[in-house]
């Protein structure tokens, strides 16, 4: 069922309140910008929250060096269009150790190039608050996440030591070594995000729209061959298929779906009908039940 404009307005007002609370209560916040649709909405809400003043904190993108090319182009375009302070961080030790999705297994790759990289970037800049686009409907361990979620020294998440969060009265106080993760989209659903993008003309990445793209099959999942670093099997060749992506990430571990949706309206029609959880297209989560919770404990978003 479609999210009504009234629902979106209530969600928007609440997210704006969270953004303002973050900007005012923390010394040095940062917005985690992953280039996907949730980040796009997050950024749009930030622009609304502080209007007519500019967004008062930088954007941080953790670049694993394996993102889709179209993601990076889009990222730089957006930063320029809105005059944003964009920071990009890559774990250089991981690059030096040649950690790739092909060499170490996906979970180790994620740990080094995403989780560790994120921790490095937060420490290096001394950010005390990081705003992320996670939603409670994405995955089970996220359903228990707070809106203002404390991280212990070392960015560890301790699900048993979460602060009680009541009413809309947030506790932004930190003791020594703690940092905060903030999730303004906690109550949003995937459908809300798309509906909001449609109603507010929020620019989103072209990879979300169906197009003929070169793919290979891994099990029953379709992987787009985005550059010549992709390790093809003997005699294997990419075939052109009309696909789009439901989530964006590192291209070798993000599967596309068959689709003919080339407009926002068609995307909305499609996800209203296809009842599949969006993270099903991420290779990383399928590894083991509760893999998201483990990553979060280590400091992943």
């Amino acid at each position: 069922m479609r999210s009504s404009t009234a629902i979106l307005k209530e969600l928007e007002d609440e997210s704006i309140e969270i953004f303002r609370e973050t900007a005012a209560a923390f010394r040095k916040p940062v917005l985690l910008y992953s280039i996907g649709k949730d980040s796009a909405v997050l950024l749009h809400l930030a622009r609304k929250a502080f209007y007519p003043a500019p967004v008062p904190f930088p954007l941080l993108h953790v670049d694993t060096t394996w993102k889709f090319k179209e993601m990076l182009t889009f990222r730089d375009e957006i930063a320029q269009r809105y005059g944003l302070n964009l920071l990009v961080h890559t774990n250089q030790e991981g690059v030096r150790d040649k950690i790739t999705p092909f060499t170490t297994g996906i979970s180790e790759y994620i740990r080094v190039m995403k989780t560790v990289a994120l921790r490095q970037a937060l420490d290096q800049h001394g950010f005390d608050a990081a705003i992320g686009g996670s939603r409670r409907d994405e995955e089970r361990s996220r359903a228990k996440e707070r809106i203002f979620s404390v991280r212990e020294p070392g960015h560890r998440w301790d699900p048993r030591q979460q602060r009680p969060e009541l009413w809309r009265t947030y506790n932004p106080k930190l003791s020594d070594g703690q940092t905060m993760r903030i999730f303004p989209l906690s109550d949003w659903t995937e459908l809300d995000v798309w509906q909001y993008i449609l109603e507010n003309d929020v620019p989103v990445n072209p990879l979300y729209f169906a197009k003929e793209r070169p793919v290979v099959y891994r099990g029953d999942q379709m992987i787009m061959v985005d550059d010549d670093r992709y390790q093809l099997r003997d005699g294997e060749e990419a075939v052109m298929r009309m696909i789009r992506f439901r989530t964006l990430g590192c291209y070798p571990i993000t599967a596309g779906v068959d689709s003919t949706a080339t407009t926002l309206q068609e995307i909305l029609d499609e996800i209203t009908e296809v009842k599949l959880s969006e993270r099903a297209t991420r290779l990383m989560d399928g590894e083991k039940e509760d893999s998201m919770e483990k990553k979060k404990v280590e400091g992943y978003f």
């Binding site: 069922m1 048993r160 919770e293």
Partner: peptide, 24 residues
């Protein structure tokens, strides 16, 4: 929800879930 809690067969924190009502 969480792994440790599922092992014990009980949940011990607050979890949130969204659904659409039939009246929109």
């Amino acid at each position: 929800g969480l792994e440790a809690e599922r092992e014990q067969g009980i949940t011990i924190d607050v979890a949130y879930r969204s659904m659409s009502l039939l009246n929109g």
